[in-house]
């Protein structure tokens, strides 16, 4: 279970449970983007949100569950003033050394055949998300990060609490 924070401004935007198979993951991302569409973010913020979430969920599918299709994933999005706190929980294998991979600075000034074809996901999460946290508890991985949107500061939310 994802820890909820206790700020009076907190409001649950979305709370989903889904499996680690491609179809369920795709459906979860789609539902998430529908929920975000109601916040009327700019196209740029909307695509940022989608990218960070997809990268974080892909990491769970590929690394925590190692492509196993039946692993449970929990996604909780909490709106708190001008930020959305995103929490993801899974029951897969822990991150190596108990922490997210360190930021990598790919050397792109190399022969074309030496260019990296992977390892971009965590850089994208760190670049676009703030306050990235990870811990392991009771056999579960807990990952959370914030997305800040200036447009959210004054906007009103009229969403059902549980979609």
């Amino acid at each position: 279970m994802i820890n909820r924070q206790s700020d009076i401004h907190d409001e649950t935007l979305l709370h989903l449970h889904f499996a680690s198979d491609p179809e369920s993951v795709g459906g979860a991302v789609e539902r998430t983007m529908t929920a975000f569409a109601a916040l009327q973010l700019s196209d740029d913020d909307q695509s940022t949100t989608e990218l960070v979430l997809v990268e974080a969920i892909n990491n769970i599918v590929e690394h925590a569950y190692q492509e196993r299709p039946d692993g449970p994933i929990e996604l909780l999005l909490i709106r708190s003033r001008s930020r959305i706190r995103c929490g993801l929980t899974d029951k897969g294998v822990p991150m190596p050394e108990g922490k997210p991979p360190a930021p990598t600075h790919h050397n792109l000034d190399c022969a074309i055949t030496d260019l990296p074809e992977g390892g971009f996901g965590w850089n994208i999460i760190r670049e676009l998300g703030q306050n990235v946290k990870y811990y392991r508890q009771n056999g579960e991985n807990h990952l959370s990060f914030d997305l800040h949107f200036s447009d959210l500061a004054t906007g009103d939310l009229h969403l059902p609490r549980h979609l």
């Binding site: 740029d44 695509s47 989608e50 997809v54 892909n58 074309i112 992977g118 971009f120 994208i124």
Partner: peptide
């Protein structure tokens, strides 16, 4: 996403000698 990006980079790496891969019309995201 990063996997798609990896596939585009992979496409560049697998090009035959003397051929180049360039990109056109990238959407904002």
């Amino acid at each position: 996403d990063s996997s798609g990006l990896g596939a585009i980079v992979g496409s560049l790496k697998q090009m035959p000698q003397n051929a180049t891969l360039e990109l056109a019309a990238l959407t904002p995201a």
